[in-house]
């Protein structure tokens, strides 16, 4: 720690605080304010909305047909499926890329992490076409195999295939990151440990469970937590592919209407928007996220070193 004059400190910190106050704190404060009013499309224009206290929160949490619960539920399901598949695929590819018997490791590595290097919005739009019912190559492959022009999965038009599709796309986008992190951790494990276990007669599975895995945990936990959070907040990719659909019932959220998509759709496509209620829902989601994130950080000891100082 350096002892520096107060005005100097202020000078260094001022720009950060200015921007954060304007673009981070103000929106949160504004959202809290709106969540306590009955603002909607009509009275917003006439400027006649007024304070209603915690009424919005009350109605969201007590209403039987509130959309919040199914939306959070499918989002959590999506997070679980995505993270599970990232871990499995990332682990397998990393272990193979760590096998010195494989020839051309560098080339395999470059090919396998390629999705990481591509701009995600472009690939989302590409994937959308790959899944296209009429002309997409996936259905064309199915037609080729079955030799039947009339077959094909309505990937983006029916709920379960659409859900699978967005999991697959997110897996494609994210596994390279897991592969690289796990590979880095694997390479830092001394070979002697595995050799010693081998001498003691441990099977490959035992060696993985008892030697490798425990040593990987410190590397895997933080990326799992962070990735869980970003997947929970997923918007771009899913919106570009399904826009939250397919919608089977106009009053209910779509099959891939994850939290962020649900909000975006609510704010931008509805003819009548209850801003007050939407803001209240936003605050509830924020609190949920905050709990998850703070637990995540505690779990990974992310902030421990800093607070110990």
């Amino acid at each position: 720690m350096l002892q520096v004059k107060k005005p100097t400190i202020a000078l260094f910190l001022f720009p950060t605080f200015l921007f954060i106050a304007l673009v981070n704190i103000f929106p949160i404060a504004y959202t809290i304010y709106i969540s306590l009013t009955n603002e909607n499309t009509f009275n917003e224009y006439l400027q006649t909305y007024h304070f209603v206290g915690l009424k919005n929160f009350q109605s969201i949490l007590t209403e039987a047909n509130t959309a919040l619960i199914p939306v959070v539920f499918i989002t959590l399901l999506y997070v679980a499926l995505c993270i599970g598949s990232f871990l499995v695929i990332g682990m397998i590819t990393a272990m193979i890329l760590n096998d010195k018997r494989i020839r051309g490791l560098k080339i395999w590595r470059a090919l396998i992490i390629l999705p990481w290097a591509m701009p995600s919005f472009v690939t989302a739009l590409i994937w959308k076409f790959l899944f296209d019912y009429n002309f997409g190559p996936f259905n064309n492959i199915l037609r080729y195999i079955t030799q039947n022009v009339n077959t094909g999965v309505n990937w983006l038009g029916s709920p379960i295939p659409a859900f699978i599709a967005v999991v697959v796309v997110n897996l494609w986008l994210s596994y390279p990151f897991f592969t690289i992190v796990i590979l880095g951790a694997l390479q830092s494990i001394p070979e002697e440990l595995n050799d010693a276990a081998k001498v003691d007669g441990a099977s490959p599975w035992q060696r993985f469970r008892e030697v490798t895995l425990p040593l990987l945990v410190p590397a895997i936990t933080p990326i799992t937590v962070m990735s869980g959070i970003t997947t929970f907040q997923m918007f771009n990719t899913v919106w570009l592919i399904t826009a939250g659909g397919p919608f089977t019932d106009i009053t209910k959220p779509g099959a891939t209407d994850f939290v962020m998509l649900y909000f975006y759709n609510y704010f931008t496509t509805g003819a009548f928007t209850n801003y007050g209620k939407a803001a209240a829902t936003a605050i509830i989601v924020f609190i949920l996220l905050l709990i998850v994130i703070l637990t995540g950080f505690r779990l990974t000891g992310f902030n421990r070193e800093e607070t110990a100082k």
């Binding site: 350096l2 107060k6 996220l289």
Partner: peptide
């Protein structure tokens, strides 16, 4: 580097703010 009051709470506060998904505040 600088020693000042509230340094640690500023750091935590920044992380907390980061948890707020900007998309939720589109109207703001």
């Amino acid at each position: 580097r600088f020693k000042f009051k509230g340094r640690l709470s500023t750091l935590t506060f920044l992380l907390t703010l980061q948890a707020f998904p900007g998309l939720l505040a589109i109207t703001a």
